[in-house]
Simulated scan of single mutants.
Amino acid sequence: MTVKHGGASSLRERYDALLLDLDGTLYQGPQAIPGAREALATGTQSLYYVTNNASRSPSEVAAHLTELGFDASEARVVTSSQSAARLLAEKIDPATAVLVVGTEALADEVARVGLRPVRSFTDFPVAVVQGHSPKTDWAILAEATLAIRSGALWVAANVDSTLPTERGLVLGNGSMVAALRTATSREPLVAGKPAAPLMEDAMRRSKCSRPLVVGDRLDTDIEGANAVGVESLLVLTGVSTAIDVLRATEEQRPTYVASELDALNRPGEESTVGEDRRYSVEFDGTDLVIEPKGGSIGTVDSATLLRHVAVSAWKYPEFGRVTSTDPAVNALVSGWGA
């Protein structure tokens, strides 16, 4: 079924698969983000759920999605734990001991590729794999430190510094990775976004020819899409904010920006980053100054304005503030933290 709005094909119809982030995009903790389930309910694109979170098994993720009303199956869940296990299997011999810093779900993925998960340095691990677990403590980090300092290969499922929950942002796997980095002076191989392995696995699994990556983080979802050369939609329902979009480095710039996931069902032009004829944006040497063309513009839409201003912000990354002489516009951009 082709979803149309005002006679124009929807954004999603440009693609044959949607590679969807989870935390901050479809749900926060145990709760679905309002409107996300309905936004995905139509269309013919295959839906693949691509998550940096290595704490749960694909079957557990699929069960959670199904419980929240999303169309999901274990085969369409691609996790950083799976990609981390693949990287390990490509680099070390079968049946080799791998010290697991993370949940049993991560250990199961290690075992599934023919390696032997262990939890102690005394088991002589030749590799360490690290994924998010709320139970990670000093003891297991100490075991991992000993192994890494002894020369073990180190693979991190992801390096997300924070994790969105229904209570707000909390520390993510990347914060624990930082502790080991400090203790060992080593850098891990990274499986999850923005590194390419997870995106490559999702594209391979979906057999897509033209996927769209959808996520809420510029530093993982969008940078990960750019790393493998595919287009992306940033939704402002999770971690990244309007000012983050304006300050985005080249490798973190999305194709589309929208306030919510239902942008998938509207014409793609509505969400494309680009100039809007209703405004002009000038760089005065210090600030970006927005002026409506032809007087006041009436109702101001934040996401539309953001997509327009981003063009100038990316051209003049040294800008200080975003301002306007129009009171409505100025009130809106002041809420961006710009």
Rank of each mutant, 00 (worst) to 15 (best):
V3A: 01
G7P: 04
A8W: 07
R12K: 06
Y15G: 02
L18V: 03
D21Y: 06
D23F: 08
G24P: 02
L26D: 03
G29R: 07
E38R: 09
A39W: 03
T42V: 09
T44S: 14
L47W: 02
L47F: 01
T51M: 05
T51D: 04
T51G: 06
N52T: 07
N53R: 01
A54V: 04
S55P: 10
R56T: 09
S57Q: 04
S59Y: 01
E60L: 07
A62V: 03
A63R: 08
A63I: 02
D71M: 05
R76V: 02
V78L: 03
S80R: 02
S81Y: 05
Q82L: 06
S83R: 05
A84L: 10
L87V: 13
L87H: 02
A89P: 03
E90I: 01
E90N: 10
D93S: 13
T96I: 04
G102P: 13
A107F: 12
A111H: 10
L115M: 02
P117R: 03
P117E: 15
R119W: 12
R119Q: 14
D123C: 10
V126D: 11
V126Y: 00
A127P: 05
A127Q: 08
Q130E: 15
G131F: 14
K135C: 00
T136N: 11
I140V: 15
I140N: 12
L141E: 06
A142N: 15
E143S: 08
T145N: 07
L146P: 00
R149L: 12
G151V: 08
G151D: 11
A152R: 05
V155Q: 11
A157W: 13
A157F: 14
N158G: 07
L169S: 13
M176R: 04
V177R: 04
A178F: 13
A179G: 06
A179R: 02
L180H: 00
R181M: 14
S185N: 15
R186I: 05
L198K: 13
A202L: 13
A202P: 12
S206W: 00
S206V: 11
R210Y: 09
P211D: 03
P211N: 08
D216M: 12
D219W: 07
D221H: 08
D221Y: 12
D221V: 06
D221A: 07
N226I: 05
N226P: 10
A227E: 14
A227Y: 01
S232L: 11
G238D: 03
S240T: 10
D244K: 05
A248Q: 02
T249Y: 05
E251W: 05
P254T: 02
T255L: 09
T255A: 06
T255G: 01
V257W: 05
V257L: 10
D262H: 13
D262V: 11
L264W: 10
R266C: 00
E270Q: 10
E270L: 15
T272R: 15
V273F: 07
E275Y: 03
D276V: 01
R277C: 00
R278H: 07
D284I: 10
T286V: 14
E291A: 15
G298F: 09
V300D: 06
V300H: 07
V300E: 05
S302G: 12
S302L: 07
T304H: 00
L306W: 09
A310D: 01
V311K: 01
S312Y: 00
W314L: 00
K315Y: 02
K315T: 13
Y316H: 15
E318I: 10
E318V: 12
F319G: 06
R321N: 14
T323W: 06
T323M: 13
D326N: 14
A328R: 15
A331L: 14
S334E: 14
W336V: 00
